[in-house]
């Protein structure tokens, strides 16, 4: 059965489309929802986890409609928000025990000990959570999310703010959970992580899915090689057969070409003729970053801060 199904899922805040006709089908896999800030990732997660009502469209988790059978949906999911919400003045064990009791687990103490073991927290189980490192807090949250053995886990930016080692460790755990048959739905900003660990990713921009597929597929669509050019000063556009401008990040400009090593000198000449001052050029295989840049285009920060809209979103979110 499809774990997560979204059919024309739409959320409007005032006249702003936070999520616009989202269609998605997620199986027992690790699915990553990628997108720039404010693209609708968190709004999507909140709708799928029954925390926010959509404006139109439907969503179902494990075959249960999120609006009509929210309780059944909540039985089979876990939601780990961005905020690292563990009670700092409670021990790790106490934090976990509260979740086990809330879920009505038959032998809460045994379950808690088992999960502390799995998440490598047994040694520190009786310390207050405020003495935990960021990685340990995340593992504690994962343990909380596993108490009732859910079928689908929603993780909002699970590795945000963690150091490299802790991030890797979290990913190992997520991977192991997926191997045991859980569906993982996560949002992230880290393209390299999504590339490495997600079975499939969806890229969302302005509330719409603009790319969907496995990281390998998406990268293959970008053709063979990426040429990155670092310029000094402004970019005057150039036209060359077989060369596609992908996007820009700072003063680095990315192009793709079917045969990169042949295209490189041609591009260098063309750029020079057009009056560009080239500082550096490099050739590499495409990464998910390139896919992302091409899909969402050059990101513009919203110009003015729209107080009303922001307040409205805050209000609806909670």
């Amino acid at each position: 059965m499809t774990s997560i199904l979204a059919d024309n899922l739409t959320k409007k805040f005032g006249d702003l489309y936070a999520v616009d006709s989202l269609n998605l089908a997620v199986e027992k896999e690790i699915f990553g929802l990628l997108g720039p800030n404010g693209s609708g990732k968190t709004t999507t997660v909140l709708m799928l986890t029954t925390l926010l009502a959509q404006t139109t469209g439907t969503a179902s988790i494990c075959g249960h409609d999120t609006r009509r059978e929210p309780d059944l949906v909540r039985e089979c999911i876990s939601y780990v928000p961005q905020e690292m919400a563990v009670d700092p003045n409670l021990t790790g064990r106490e934090n976990l025990l509260i979740f086990a009791r809330l879920y009505g687990i038959p032998n809460p103490k045994d379950k808690v000990d088992e999960l502390l073991g799995i998440m490598e927290l047994t040694d520190r189980a009786h310390d207050l959570a405020k003495t935990y490192s960021g990685g340990m807090r995340r593992r504690l949250e994962l343990a909380e999310a596993l108490v009732h053995e859910p079928e689908v886990i929603f993780l909002d930016e699970p590795t945000l703010g963690l150091d490299v080692g802790a991030r890797q460790n979290i990913w190992q755990h997520i991977h192991a959970l997926n191997k045991k048959g859980m569906t993982i739905f996560m949002t992230t900003h880290y393209m390299d992580e999504a590339d490495k660990y997600c079975d499939r990713v969806g890229i969302i921009s302005h509330g719409k899915v603009v790319a969907l597929g496995s990281p390998a597929e998406l990268k293959a669509r970008l053709m063979n090689t990426v040429i990155t050019v670092t310029l000094e000063g402004n970019y005057s556009p150039v036209q060359l057969d077989g060369l596609v401008f992908v996007g820009q990040s700072g003063n680095a400009y990315a192009f793709t070409a079917e045969n990169g090593s042949e295209a490189l000198p041609l591009l260098a000449d063309a750029l020079g003729r057009a009056g560009n001052r080239v500082k550096a050029m490099s050739l590499r295989e495409p990464s998910l970053d390139d896919v992302f840049l091409q899909s969402v285009g050059k990101q513009e920060e919203p110009r003015g801060f729209e107080e009303m809209k922001f307040r409205m979103m805050l209000h609806r979110r909670h």
Binding site: T49, L51, I77, P81, E83, M84, L102, H318
Partner: peptide, 13 residues
Amino acid sequence: ILGYLNKFLAMPV
């Protein structure tokens, strides 16, 4: 504010 409420609200309790 600290995110606990959303966690609790996503539970079947």
